[in-house]
Amino acid sequence: MKIDKNTINKIARLSRIKLDDKESEDYIKDLNSILDWVEQLNEVNTENVEPLSNISSSILPKREDVSNDTNSSEEILENAPDKLEGFFAVPKVVE
C-alpha cells in the first residue's frame, strides 16, 4: 500500500485541505487503487525519451517588452471575502 494514514495526512496538509477520519479512509482507498492502476506505465520503456510539457506545434510569439498600468486594484478587490483599506484581509498571522 503506497498511501497510509501518515501519507494522506501529509498530502492533505500540503494541499491545505482538512480531512476528517472518514474522508481520510475513503481517500486512502481511492488513491491506492488509482496509483495501482497507473503503475502500468512502468511497462513502457522511456529511456532517452524527452518529457513532453508543451504540446503546441506553433511558435509562441514574444510580446513587446513594454509596461502597462491597468490600475485595477478596486476591481481586483471586488470579490474579496474580506478587505481593509485597499488590501485583502486575512486572520492575524503575527502576535
Binding site: I3, I8, I11, I17, K18, L19, E23, Y27, L31, I34
Partner: peptide, 19 residues
Amino acid sequence: TRAQGFGREVKRRILIGTY
C-alpha cells in the same frame, strides 16, 4: 475553506496531484 468549498472528486484529484 478548501475542505468545505471543494467537492469530493475535486479533492480526490487535488490530493492525487499533490502526491
